[in-house]
Design a binder for these strands. Structure first.
Lengths: 235, 235
DNA sequence: TAGGATTTGTGCGTATGTATT
DNA sequence: TAATACATACGCACAAATCCT
């Protein structure tokens, strides 16, 4: 060992991860809405790289179902519809319950504080509703939930399914007249979920977290389906 | 529309899938054992392609945990150990039960015949045990099981987890003195599983298939752990 | 219908990192 | 310790496919 490995900006592998997470966030916040066409050259320019590492990231996003590359056309953000997502939601509901059963990990003091911080964030959102901020806080909450199991494959798969579904609320709500009211309602529901989970964690009842989450995910999808009905009644 | 799209050999996308499945099979049959180093150039030559599409396939296998690319070294088949796979098995056990509950699909006559063909294959294996043939038949059975649910994400994820675990039996059994006996026993267990599943299907009791599979996967892992103990007692 | 513009897929040379002698 | 061998990561040029005029 002669000297420190001279870590330049981005370990190469970590740079890819950063780009991956950036693009995923943009897709899930609808900065890139369904149908949006990405161009490899543009992304390469933006991230100061060549097309090769960009293509590596796009390939992963394609394998995960968020993008679809078409030869000669472009790389297109996948569309999402309630019917296809119903399957994903069913699976998410079932997996949610496993968090309390498979290698549960009780959060320490700092962990609990992070849950409390999300709850505070909810309160702020109730005061001043904002769809993007809501979506971000939801992701943060999900990341915290993931810390509650030591089962790595469960975390990985739950994450994948979560990111496949999380765009749908923003998409369906956006085209409804009652958008403002729906957003406020959804934030209230979310706050309730966070509060319920936090209460279970403070009581040390990890098994209950799974049941709580299961119920909330199922109800969330039911509301979504009702909204989709109103948005496109005859479909 | 002027003329038929003139489908050449391999639609491009399908060629990638073929290479992917070929390499995955080799990894799972231990033709490429854990630690084996693949070289992009070799694979490119074998499949009459350049390194680029090969890299696309290797990237996917890396994302799925079967390979690990190390800059300057090579692309290495991941090692597998009981401890890490315990998590995957726990999840597989839980997912198995979902097959009877999430969008179950009753097989038609031809579907049942394919299950019966697997059972016949088991009988042949009992007569003349062969580890590779057993592994292949096991994969075939898994593919049939996957047809029993219409929930695409469930199929996809189950498949992924299956291929992450299926190598382990061949690997642990191979270094045991009682290899021949263990193989015969494992084939007998497998035959029992296929017979049980077939009986449930013939009775039209799809919900039971999940329970049967769940029990067999759990027992299979228990046997595996016992074998691993014998193979490396002090670990 | 044909042709040009544009975009992804492919092929390959070079840079960078690792292991070994 | 330095140098050599060799493999992946990267970047670029070209081929193939699609869309639009």
């Amino acid at each position: 060992m002669t000297s420190a490995p001279q870590r330049r900006r981005g370990d190469g592998r970590q740079r890819l991860l950063r780009i991956y997470e950036t693009l995923r966030l943009r897709i899930c916040l609808l900065d890139y809405p369904p149908g949006h066409r990405l161009r490899e050259a543009d992304l390469a320019a933006e991230f100061a790289a060549s097309r090769t590492p960009i293509r590596r990231v796009l390939a992963r996003l394609e394998d995960e179902g968020l993008l679809r590359s078409v030869h000669g056309v472009g790389t297109i953000v996948t569309d999402i519809d309630i019917a296809a997502l119903a399957e994903v939601y069913e699976l998410r509901v079932a997996l949610a319950e496993l968090y309390g059963r498979l290698a549960p990990v009780a959060p320490d003091g700092a962990g609990l504080d992070r849950f409390r911080a999300v709850l505070s964030g909810c309160d702020a959102l109730v005061e001043r509703p904002d769809a993007r901020a809501f979506a971000r806080l939801n992701m943060e909450f999900f990341a915290l939930i993931a810390t509650l199991t030591a089962n790595a494959p469960l975390r990985q798969i739950s994450e994948r399914l979560y990111y496949q579904t999380t765009r749908i609320w923003l998409k369906t709500a956006a085209r409804l007249a009652a958008y403002e009211r729906l957003l406020a309602e959804e934030i209230a529901h979310f706050r309730r979920e966070v509060a319920d989970v936090l209460a279970a964690l403070e009581a040390g009842d990890l098994a209950n977290v799974g049941a709580i989450r299961r119920a909330h995910i199922a109800m969330s999808f039911a509301r979504l389906r009702a909204q989709a009905e109103r948005a496109a009644p005859g479909e």
